[in-house]
Design a binder for these strands. Structure first.
Lengths: 151, 151
DNA sequence: CAGTATCCGTGGCGATACTG
DNA sequence: CAGTATCGCCACGGATACTG
């Protein structure tokens, strides 16, 4: 029924309005407020990736590990999280250019609630196909990727 | 989002999922799958209301306690949850007509993950304004409303 | 590599009107 | 009371092209 998600729904939920900025219309229930933060199909996967990485990750690395996210959506969500203070952006004056994203302590606080959701989904809607970083071995793969970025 | 019977326990769940129109494009991460279930601005508030009520609730009662949700969105989400086996719909042949919605055991499984979200939101994005049913006293108010429906 | 700019379809969501 | 029908806006999100 619903085309995308978003928790929004949670995804679908409220929106990160135009670009960036924190929606101020939050006289909603706590759940709805959560949805405002993690609005959009890819919001949760993106921040969760950075949480698991627990270190600087480059743009392309993120895009690869989150495939098939588009560049536009990835950068949009990153700027959103940056505005919320959940992610920091570090630019290195090199060639080729290098930009690294790093989850903040505040961003890390999302780990528990997100994993509660993931656990529920795995329990009641298990899937044989591609899983993004829910299993320990895939988490290791991601950490390895992040360490690759660091090196 | 954006857009479900009897005590559908885990045993009956697998079978039910076949018959029902769950978005089949779920080769996503668990988090994204959660978003597919609770897609839409009002999805989570609606199901959470029914979980807290823990008993039959009438359409109008739901709409009042979820204000300012529109009739269209409320009925849309209710039909969605009904199709997922998370809510049952009971129609009474009376005048004026009476329809009661009741959360199933399967629907109840959402309580924990949802409360994880709510707890996070309250901790980091507290709000002085209207809160929907997150506090104990408001839960009592809701339960009272549901009991009113039962009487 | 790390983005931004642009076009465009789909559909979520609100508002309003109508029905059994 | 409990909905459905219809209209319209615009945000989400994919695809593509371009840039420092």
């Amino acid at each position: 029924m619903d085309k995308n998600n978003t928790l929004a729904s949670l995804s679908g939920l409220a929106q990160m309005k135009k670009n960036v900025s924190v929606p101020a219309r939050s006289n909603l229930c706590p759940v709805a407020r959560f949805g405002e933060i993690l609005a959009g199909k890819w919001a949760t996967p993106v921040i969760y990736r950075l949480i698991l990485a627990d270190g600087p990750v480059r743009f392309n690395t993120l895009q690869r590990t989150l495939r098939p996210i588009s560049q536009k959506e990835l950068s949009r969500h990153l700027r959103h999280f940056e505005a919320l203070g959940m992610v920091t952006r570090q630019v290195y004056a090199e060639v080729p250019p290098r930009v690294e994203y790093l989850v903040t302590d505040f961003g890390r606080t999302l780990r528990e609630p997100i994993e509660a959701l993931a656990h529920w989904a795995e329990q009641y809607f298990p899937v044989s196909g591609q899983v993004h970083a829910a299993t320990p071995d895939q988490q290791h793969a991601l950490v390895a990727a992040a360490q690759g970025d660091r090196a």
